[in-house]
């Protein structure tokens, strides 16, 4: 599903290059629920963006669902983002002037294949029902709570039935109860739709609830196989 070999990435400020990811190798299988933990600025978000084809400026090889990201042009990479992956961000990034339904159906606007209006409406209702917000189709996101907004963002990410969900601290702006609801939603999607989930988090409870934990530290990645490692990195659960 995801195969990364020798991934390196530098941020350049003028002539100075700061390494963010250093020679990362990673394999993720279909249906895995993976959390990525690590200190702030360690490169977690950059890794997620690189896997999702948002960032092309890297060295090494990334193969996602058979697509070698290095070899895709802008149009192919856009189609890849549209069909294969779905993003969920901490800040939701919903369009405030558009209704929930329009936000959810945003990927349909850029779908390489034409889709009928009826099909778009039907799929919108379907994913809104999955996230439990079928009654808020016509509302603007600005009238929703944080948890509801994040569920709209998840519905948008799921619109085109992606194989992989890339979630960047999706509960970072939510209280604990709402955060647990959102994680439960991911878990449900992971189980029912066989969607592979890669989730960046600082929350030890969330990290522990996933099937696999990855540590990114100083641009390097390692699998955490013991509770001690996890405790040391993200702390003990409250």
């Amino acid at each position: 599903m995801i195969r990364i070999r020798g991934l390196c990435k530098n941020y350049r400020v003028g002539a100075k290059a700061t390494p963010v990811l250093r020679s990362i190798d990673l394999d993720v299988e279909r249906g895995e629920f993976v959390s990525i933990v690590g200190p702030s600025g360690s490169g977690k978000t950059t890794l997620l963006h690189t896997i999702g084809g948002l960032d092309r400026d890297f060295e090494g090889d990334i193969e996602v669902c058979g697509h070698n990201l290095k070899r895709l042009d802008d149009s192919q990479l856009s189609a890849f983002r549209n069909r294969t992956v779905g993003f969920v961000f901490q800040a939701f990034y919903l369009l405030p002037h558009r209704s929930c339904a329009e936000n959810v159906a945003l990927p349909a606007l850029f779908s390489p294949e034409g889709t009928s209006t009826d099909a778009i409406r039907a799929r919108t209702r379907e994913v809104m029902e999955q996230v439990g917000l079928n009654s808020r189709l016509d509302d603007l996101p600005t009238v929703l709570s944080g948890g509801q907004r994040q569920r709209i963002a998840i519905a948008r990410a799921m619109f085109n039935k992606p194989s992989i969900l890339l979630c960047d601290e999706p509960t970072g702006n939510l209280d604990q109860a709402m955060g647990e609801t959102i994680i439960e939603l991911f878990r449900t999607l992971n189980r029912s739709e066989q969607v592979t989930v890669l989730l960046v988090t600082h929350d030890p409870n969330i990290a522990r609830s996933t099937s696999r934990q990855l540590l990114v530290e100083d641009g390097r990645m390692s699998d955490m196989t013991t509770d001690e490692q996890l405790d040391r990195t993200v702390g003990t659960p409250a």
Binding site: L54, D74, A79, S111, R156, N160
Partner: peptide, 16 residues
């Protein structure tokens, strides 16, 4: 710019 970013994230090309 965030809006453009999210459109790119959900599949908009540069030309779009």
């Amino acid at each position: 710019q965030h809006e453009i970013g999210i459109m790119r994230a959900v599949g908009a090309t540069r030309w779009d």
